[in-house]
Amino acid sequence: MSFMGFVLSAVAVASALGVVFNRNPLYSAFHLIVNLLAMAGVYSVLDAHFLAVTQVVVYAGAIMVLVLFVLMLLNLKAGSGRKLGIFRPLCAIAVACSVVTTVYPAVESNFKDLSLHELQEKAWRSEGTVKAVGEELYGRYVRQFELSSLVLLIGIVGAVTLSKRKEGKIGPREGGLGGGK
């Protein structure tokens, strides 16, 4: 990885610490945005431009805007959260350890015999990373891809069902462009 890659990684780590240690939830959210953008930068240094752009569109551009929206709507004051006990940090550490121990062997076994340079070569040879990602997603991993889209669909249906108002209660004002109902 180049010099830029190390700088971006340092920014990512620092902002991740900022997410955890900030007392104000809004500042935590800002740090998370910086973290996601830095990760996108790391992807693009590794020539995974499509992944980088997708990261910005989906996480930094859509999900974090929603998070920020909710935090601004609630208008929380700094340090209004409950005091941390000993139980929560232990839980967090356990989850972090389990994620690392699950992900790391998978990453290592897949890329053990490939150097970073070879990976980049592969990406360039397949006429840009968009095509490479598309071929992997809709070729080798098509079942996993479709299954995860099914999970997302279930999530959407669940969210709509939970947030639906009961009939007869006060709803949003009718009579908009579509003439309401």
Partner: peptide, 25 residues
């Protein structure tokens, strides 16, 4: 000349929301 240039424009458009959000806050 990155591939996915069209997506990049979309991404930058969505990042611009933060300027407005932070300004309002």
């Amino acid at each position: 000349a990155i591939d996915g240039g069209l997506l990049f424009v979309l991404a930058m458009g969505s990042v611009a929301v933060y300027g407005v959000a932070i300004a309002g806050w």
